[in-house]
Simulated scan of single mutants.
Amino acid sequence: MNAGFVCAAEMLPVPRAAGLTAEQIAGERCVWCGVPASMELGARISPLGGTLQRWEPRACRSCAGREAERVYGLHITTCARCSHRDYCPDREALARLAGERAQ
């Protein structure tokens, strides 16, 4: 699989929706720091108001990059492909997203 087909932002875990503000749940603000959001993280399903609901979290570039760095570090130590030094599209996508933070 080509790393271009993997969406690293969708691999990032997000905070529980129950602990977020209405603006963060609506995708107007970063789910981590609360500043205006510019990056989509993909649709999620979470319990909200007593029922499962679809929501579309978003993040600022800085927080998404920081989280991608953290997930990348976990990924390379647990992925069978990465531990055998094989090509891993998930690793490549996470590294690319983490690198965007610096730009």
Rank of each mutant, 00 (worst) to 15 (best):
R54N: 11
A43F: 11
C30L: 13
A22Q: 11
L52Q: 15
A18D: 06
E28F: 04
L20A: 05
A98Y: 07
V31N: 08
L12Y: 04
E100N: 06
G4D: 08
R101N: 09
A22Y: 08
S38T: 14
A3H: 03
A43N: 03
G65T: 01
H84M: 11
L97V: 00
T51M: 08
R91P: 00
D90C: 15
F5M: 12
P89C: 02
H75W: 15
R101S: 03
A18V: 01
G49K: 11
Y72C: 00
D86T: 00
V35L: 12
C33R: 02
E100I: 01
S46D: 15
C7Y: 01
G49D: 12
A59R: 02
G27P: 05
V35Y: 08
E23Q: 10
T78G: 04
A3T: 00
D86C: 10
R54Q: 13
C33V: 03
G34L: 02
E69V: 01
E92D: 13
A59F: 09
R16C: 09
P13C: 09
W32E: 04
R61T: 01
E23N: 08
P47I: 08
L41E: 00
A43H: 07
Y72H: 11
A26Q: 04
R16T: 10
C7Q: 03
R58S: 11
E67Y: 07
A3M: 00
P57H: 08
L41N: 00
R29D: 03
A43W: 14
T77N: 11
A80H: 13
A9F: 11
A9W: 03
G99W: 15
M39H: 13
M1F: 13
V35C: 13
C79K: 07
C63P: 09
M39L: 15
A8F: 06
E40G: 15
V31Y: 12
